[in-house]
Design a protein around this nucleic acid. Structure first.
Length: 690
DNA sequence: TCCGCTTGTCATATA
DNA sequence: CTTATATGACAAGCG
């Protein structure tokens, strides 16, 4: 925060508050990270801090620049330490903030500007840059800034001037005439692009209306978010992940300017300022959509969070988003997507060079010739088998029982679970040999997809089977009917999507398979790419349940589910295999965890016991030392006593002939040693009492 | 190529 | 007997 001070100090009497609201209790499952521009301390100040709660952090910048106070809001205000607020409080608060027409935008957005401003060297420059940002956006990616905002750079980019934007005419009256307000507002509108809805002509009133409508829809969406929370939890993850993926792509493409402060400082230290400016500001569409009472805030609200996540993932965690690309999100492609889009990734490098799927099938051999060996590895043969299955499935008279024949391989047991054998043992055995699809790159051969796999390997070696052998789908695609159907099926059948949200196994399998699939087919549909083996099998057999369901469902529900659906023996067998493997996979993971815990606990025990042993050793040494001291003292005492003792005749007592004995009553006796035989001691002691 | 690690799977024991 | 779970053993993949 200290980096922001120069700029914020210039802000005058406004309270600049960044508040991170943890609204999990609202079932938003989101963290809000907003900048709020508020008038000098009001009740909202208290409530904002209150709403921040213990699970969130609120950063406040002093409303009084002279004070120079910077720090966490909860350190500036005692209420910040109060208990976590009720969800209603937070919701009500936000509504009130919105009602005040207080502009706010995600912190990350502000951070970007602020950091850039700091990099520019002075606070005034910051304003200038902010204005320039709007101006640059006009000719940049956004290309939508209105003319009035372009006039801002003339006076150093003072956003006050930019506030004359037609869009902000209404807002200008409600919001304080604060430079930051306008800029933030513009940034807030940019946030709306997260959903991929770019404003092309924001300055026009018609577009403005559309904007409002969209924003209103967003507001409704957010308002009902609480109600839909549970539904959202049940929704396929691809919906949410699609957004995330979209953001990732945007980030990687430089169309996302939501940077965290940390990210930006990393960039500051590594990039020339010019590039940084472009990075931060170049594509910032100065769209202002906040018209006061409307729901703009809520829009920013929800998008702010996603932006934050997006940025982090894109900037730090996902240098290569190949594998982070959500498989399911790909299915969000329009249903009309032809097979051509099987490899229509954002990253051109992920596409097959010079390859287009419409031409790929009939020309697959040539394409392999034309591409690198790496490409050959990328050709996951699985896709061919699945395509075949899908194609068959779309054909009239498709019989699932024919499927095993497709998978059967003469020289392997890869009848797999799909083998018509109902012997579960043989089925699972065959499955075990299927490390296959993932092992394709390494030449493992007894696979479900082995048919095509072998063909592919042959292709790698320089021999290319006949295209129709390699891709029996080709004939159907040639017809222009079956192929499309099959491909559309690949795209549109989302029934068996991998839902790794809760299933540990799936995520694990992804972690493993994802690596191998790195080499695996980019030919695969994005949906299929990250599907596990079982998921692909289930899909191939048209099993109407997801692997996740099959595995996690309680046995009663599982049986009910099976009874409710007509399933072939083959399907039943596969389902049970999937369930067994899924359960066992989780069990194995738990078992390993337990084993590790046990080992760790044992190691701890060993350490503790060793420590105890050392302590005991030291104690023993101390006791021995004390004993020796006592012995020495006793010895000295003996000598001293005997040196003073005299017998009846006044002669010194020889310590070698006598010994001292302590009686029970405390008296000390001098006893001749020869009389110290056990039976005689007591009697003689008394006679020799001194 | 070898080695160690991780993970999935199977077989088997146990509850 | 069936089912779920636990665990040893094995294999494959990866770095």
């Amino acid at each position: 925060m200290k980096y922001l001070k120069p700029w914020w100090s210039d802000g005058g009497g406004l309270l600049h508050l960044t508040i991170l609201l943890s609204l999990a209790e609202l079932h938003l499952d989101l963290d809000l990270d907003l900048y709020l521009l508020l008038p000098p301390p009001t009740r909202l100040w208290d409530e904002l801090l209150l709403a921040s709660g213990p699970t969130s952090s609120a950063y406040a910048l002093s409303p009084f620049p002279a004070s120079g106070v910077w720090g966490r809001a909860d350190q500036l205000h005692p209420k910040g330490r109060e208990p976590d607020p009720a969800a209603e409080s937070a919701g009500r608060l936000l509504r009130e903030v919105r009602a005040l027409g207080v502009p706010f935008i995600p912190r990350t957005r502000v951070d970007a500007w602020l950091v850039h401003s700091v990099a520019a060297g002075d606070a005034d420059g910051a304003h200038g840059l902010l204005g320039a940002a709007a101006a640059s956006s006009a000719g940049g990616v956004g290309a939508s800034v209105d003319d009035s905002s372009q006039a801002a750079p003339g006076d150093g980019g003072d956003p006050r001037a930019a506030a004359s934007s037609p869009l902000d005419a209404g807002e200008e009256e409600k919001a304080p005439a604060e430079p930051t307000a306008q800029v933030l507002d513009a940034a807030a509108s940019q946030e709306n692009e997260v959903l991929g809805e770019r404003h092309q002509e924001v300055g026009h009133s018609s577009q403005n209306k559309e904007n409002e409508q969209r924003v209103s829809a967003q507001e409704k969406k957010l308002q009902h978010k609480n109600e839909d929370a549970h539904e959202a939890a049940d929704k396929p993850d691809w919906e949410a992940e699609k957004t995330t993926e979209s953001r990732n792509e945007r980030s990687l493409n430089g169309t996302d300017t939501a940077f965290s402060l940390e990210d930006l400082f990393q960039l500051l230290s590594s990039q020339p300022e010019n590039s940084l400016e472009g990075l931060l500001l170049g594509d910032t569409p100065p769209v202002s959509i906040n018209d006061g009472m409307n729901s703009t805030h809520n829009v920013n609200f929800s998008q702010a969070i996603s932006h934050d996540v997006n940025l982090h993932e894109a900037m730090l965690l996902c240098p290569d988003n190949t594998f982070r690309r959500d498989p399911v999100a790909r299915t969000s492609q329009p249903p009309q997507e032809p097979f051509l889009h099987l490899n229509s990734h954002t990253n051109s490098e992920q596409t097959l060079p010079g390859t287009n799927w419409t031409g790929f099938l009939p020309l697959v051999g040539n394409q392999i010739h034309l591409t690198s060996e790496d490409l050959l590895h990328d050709l996951d043969i699985n896709i061919f088998d699945e395509i075949s299955l899908m194609s068959l499935a779309t054909e009239e008279g498709f019989d699932p029982m024919e499927v095993p024949q497709l998978f059967q391989e003469p020289d392997s047991d890869s009848g797999l679970s799909l083998n018509s054998s109902h012997n579960s043992t043989s089925v699972t055995k065959s499955n075990s040999s299927h490390s296959m699809c993932e092992g394709g790159a390494t030449g493992s051969s007894s696979d479900l997809e082995s048919l095509s796999h072998h063909d592919l390997e042959g292709a790698v070696g320089g021999y290319y089977p006949e295209p129709n052998k390699l891709c029996h789908v080709d004939h159907r695609s040639d017809s222009g009917f079956h192929g499309d159907l099959a491909f559309q099926h690949l795209f549109h059948n989302h029934t068996y999507h991998l839902q790794p949200s809760g299933l540990e196994s799936t995520s694990n399998s992804f972690s493993q398979y994802g690596k191998s699939q790195k080499i695996q087919g980019r030919c695969l549909n994005d949906t299929d790419r990250n599907l596990s083996r079982d998921e692909r099998r289930a899909k191939a057999l048209h099993i109407p349940f997801s692997v996740d369901e099959i595995v996690r469902m309680p046995v009663e529900s599982f049986n009910n589910m099976l009874s409710r659906h007509y399933l072939t023996d083959l399907q039943m067998s596969l389902i049970r295999d999937i369930r067994r493997r899924g359960k066992n996979k989780v069990a194995a993971q738990n078992c390993r965890k337990r084993k590790l815990d046990i080992i760790l606990n044992l190691e701890d025990d060993v350490c503790n016991l060793q420590a105890k042993k050392e302590i005991l050793k030291r104690e023993r040494a101390q006791y021995n030392k004390a004993i020796n001291i006592l012995k020495q003292k006793l010895h000295n005492l003996y000598r001293d006593i005997f040196s003073r003792l005299r017998d009846d005749e006044g002669r010194p007592v020889n310590p070698n002939q006598y010994t001292l004995q302590c009686s029970q009553d405390g008296s000390v006796l001098i006893v001749p040693k020869e009389l110290m035989a056990p039976g005689h001691r007591k009697e003689n002691q008394k006679g020799k009492t001194k």
